[in-house]
Design a binder for these strands. Sequence first.
DNA 1: CGGCGAGTTGAACGTAATCAATTGTCGTGG
DNA 2: CCACGACAATTGATTACGTTCAACTCGCCG
Lengths: 233, 233
Amino acid sequence: MSDCDACLVRNRAICSALSADELAALSKLGRKQMVQRGQTLVWEGDEALVVANVIQGVLKLSVSTADGREQIVGVVFPSDFIGRPFGKESPYGVTALTEAEVCIFTRSAFDGFAKDHPDLQHKLLQRTLDELDRARQWMMLLGRKTASERIATLLLEMSNRLGSSSCAAIAPFLDAFDLPMDRQQMGDVLGLTIETVSRQLTKLKDADMIELPDRRRVVIKDRRRLEQLASAA
Amino acid sequence: MSDCDACLVRNRAICSALSADELAALSKLGRKQMVQRGQTLVWEGDEALVVANVIQGVLKLSVSTADGREQIVGVVFPSDFIGRPFGKESPYGVTALTEAEVCIFTRSAFDGFAKDHPDLQHKLLQRTLDELDRARQWMMLLGRKTASERIATLLLEMSNRLGSSSCAAIAPFLDAFDLPMDRQQMGDVLGLTIETVSRQLTKLKDADMIELPDRRRVVIKDRRRLEQLASAA
DNA sequence: CGGCGAGTTGAACGTAATCAATTGTCGTGG
DNA sequence: CCACGACAATTGATTACGTTCAACTCGCCG
């Protein structure tokens, strides 16, 4: 439908592979949609009927066990792509961590369009490869890093991803930002409990590596030491 | 170069997207190569100069920290694709767990060929999406499962993947197989120590869920209970 | 028979989980 | 504006799971 020209992620999302008229054709297949905090776009195990581009906001991809343990397996930022094109049920749920805006398509419509647009698939492939690399780095974190190393890594990752998804060109990373998640969700990303997250944050604060002005805000005071801690010296 | 027609993974590897003459063209760009157990094909952090298809054998993808901790972030079986096409240094190393045979290409040659063959890229995209799903399932394991749940999951995963990569059509999974890795490597996949792996295997044996005739062999005696344990009741 | 490496088993320890209480923050209504 | 309630976060005490360190067993090859 709408004015993709004015889209906030026009140059970064996979749409950037398309020419003006291709873009117009694609936009007819989808629509913009607001998603409020906590709302689930796709349920774990359901057939994945939709895919989407994130325009604004942050969403989580999560998996849970029968007895209720949850693991967040991905965090999605503006310009990122959501969903499982070309078949398959979604092995994870997609839920908004903050209020968000997405450009949403039915999977069948998107698949059909993608089939005829190799450049789009190429972009999607690159994005998926990047996402896979990120997932694997996170596997190292979950399998082998200590609690404090995990926290340090998360803070730096957030600093980077929020940095590059915001005013971009200026800052590759941010020294002060608001976490798009609460303590429980940090635990779910890191494979830790809420109490451990809290304790480790306090430790980093006491060591003057960070400040925590309020429950969401983080200020990085000593990036060097934080990086040293994160990469598991 | 060679007789792709006779290739063991002809119908399952990404090459299956290609017609006979396309295949002939691609095969001129690569060559078959044996890799012996323990040999590293790509080093972590090096520029990824090669990509490959696995014909025979099993390889690991691994990441390690400065102080020597290792995490295996992927295990690659026959017909799987190895490498990071389209730029970037490889964020993980690739090392043979068993003697292996691969069909290897320089990245530049492969990239050039792939650029003109959307069907190949499509296959590659599907494979990468599957790999990403698997990585995310493994994140759940590493972040939230207990030691015994992890071991059970690994045994079932091996049963499945060895099953479908072998005589295939007959068995979707195997009840008896040889692990393509030692205890240390199992630990590196599961984010556990060698001692914990050993103890948990003994427990499963004592509970009559499995047998361990020798150090590599596993026989699944009670798949039901093993599955129940793995999926974290 | 001896030596080596892989694997198992045992005992003590430590990190993070669990259980529980307290503090802090935000939104609502008096 | 403050009091209240609900929820998020912190802090504390205890427990438990997996790690660490160490001894021992097994299978294999010289």
